[in-house]
Design a protein around this nucleic acid. Structure first.
Lengths: 297, 297
DNA sequence: TAATATCGATAAGTTTTTCTAAAGCGATGC
DNA sequence: GCATCGCTTTAGAAAAACTTATCGATATTA
């Protein structure tokens, strides 16, 4: 069979332009410049040897014949979209196994799993809850939610969320102060930091308009969960990722001391094995989780 | 509306490969190399993050899900082909007005018009029969069938037929000679040439394996129609375009004296106005006529 | 059983297509 | 009048597509 088909890319541009009756809007829809649409339409018109649009002063209108063509193309492109969506959905079945730290799983993943299952009914998730960073193969993992920078070698890191932090403390510690507190007041309180990540405190003070104060009381913790526990116990102020502690903020066991927030250069990533084929189910999970977390901010 | 569509070119390659279950045949269908199809399929597989084909030793087979996708794409691409064919057909309406010499019209165009109307039912042809070469605008012409070289300035020349000539004569003139005649015998007869185009006789003798004979009797005519009349009247041998005189050859009023035929550097062209938009109806007429004439050879 | 042919994958390089940036044009609206 | 808006055009840059050549694996043929 030999079909005689015009350039399909041109047809797509034409369909969009016809639907909007505007090259500019079509360009926006297809994420190109308006000039690109103009080129494509022109090429298609040359191909057919006929005008598709009447160019008016500040708008374009369709030829009668072109309108019929556009209507058919609209249907056809919808069908393509449906067919490929169906194909994608068929790939979203089976089980994927993901390593997560219990800390993160309890706060950010498990509470929302119903939503995920509603979106991807055919896809089962298994979680390997552990603080160890294990080999993918060793534990039969398809992916791992990992906290840190996005530069893990041998894996593709899909960003889920970069920490968005502000100083938080137990209300017991700051019950007398009015909120929000000035950076200077905060500097006078004991500060909890993750060992090796003290620079985030100085970044925060800088963002809050003050140099890092000398002579403040600072405690160092091996993990951010421990720093957070320390703050919860009323012993110090910690820099905490706000989406992660939304429950504590909501029930009042922690209060945010300042409206100054900074985005760190570390956060949660979904690590998946490198290679030419990225499991679309993992990409879907990562996308869903990113959307979920950003909805919490 | 924002559709999420895979690259349409890749989908087309995939559909062809799926239909043939062969990258190579798909490549042939789409007039590209096998490597190109391989690239496109690979890109599509990366896009979906899933295999479309199982690669066997020397053949490929479809994934179940991919087979479903391919079936839908086949339908969809057929629809696109139908829609664009319909659009093209809708352009093939109205009337086009073409200038033709009466000589040519009577022999090559008017006898076959029924065929053209059968092929393009909605398209009317009007002929302006004249030997004058008129301006397109002046006589409200859309195109002109013109004899000569393909270098007319200010017009796009679409080749219909380059003269394919052989020496012909009235049977009365050559009744005693056996056919075909040797070039030497032909040289001894009076030859009719179009003024300024004597070189075609020498080209013909060269092709027939003989230098142009000196001292032959040659008459010169202003037009090829007149040279042909002269031959019809039994006065000389003329070099005539064989499709053009098929009726005379068929009814015996002319005989072809040699099997040596040469293609000249001049012939019939369809001249249309230059410009970015070439009327597809004229292109269709030119294509049809070229096919018609080549069928007469 | 060895030589040959076929089919798809891949690497590297080239060509073609597509896109953008910038300037222009004609018309509109303030 | 002057600024604005939407499409066009040109020139050049960027990206995509394609080709050539080669490889590996496996049928086919001799």
């Amino acid at each position: 069979m030999t079909r005689r088909l015009p350039n399909l890319k041109h047809l797509r541009a034409f369909e969009a332009a016809a639907r909007h009756l505007s090259f500019k809007q079509a360009a926006d829809e297809l994420s190109v410049t308006q000039a690109a649409i103009s080129h494509q339409i022109k090429a298609l018109e040359q191909h057919f040897g006929a005008r598709l649009f009447h160019r008016m002063n500040r708008q374009v209108t369709l030829t009668n014949e072109a309108a019929a063509l556009a209507a058919e193309l609209e249907k056809v492109l919808d069908q393509v979209a449906v067919a490929s969506a169906r194909f994608r959905a068929q790939m979203m079945t089976g089980t994927i196994r993901i390593s997560v730290t219990p800390f993160y799983a309890n706060r950010m993943v498990l509470p929302y799993l119903d939503e995920f299952h509603a979106a991807y009914p055919g896809l089962n998730l298994e979680f390997d809850l552990s603080y160890e960073i294990a080999d993918f193969a060793e534990r039969d993992l398809d992916g791992a939610l990992r906290y840190g920078h996005s530069d893990r070698p041998g894996a593709h890191m899909q960003l889920v969320h970069l920490d968005l932090v502000a100083p938080v403390a137990s209300p017991a510690m700051v019950h007398r102060a009015e909120q929000p507190m000035k950076p200077g007041q905060i500097a006078s309180l004991p500060l909890a930091a993750v060992a090796g990540q003290e620079r985030y405190w100085s970044q925060w003070f800088k963002a809050a308009g003050q140099a890092f104060p000398s002579g403040c009381t600072m405690s160092f913790h091996e993990q951010r969960a421990l720093a957070l526990d320390f703050a919860l116990a009323g012993n110090a102020v910690a820099l905490a990722d706000l989406p992660l502690i939304r429950n504590e903020l909501a029930n009042g066991s922690l209060v945010c001391l300042s409206e100054t927030q900074i985005t760190l250069d570390r956060g949660i990533h979904l690590a998946v094995p490198e290679g030419p084929f990225r499991d679309p189910r993992l990409t879907a999970f990562g996308d869903w989780l990113r959307g979920r977390v950003s909805g919490l901010i």
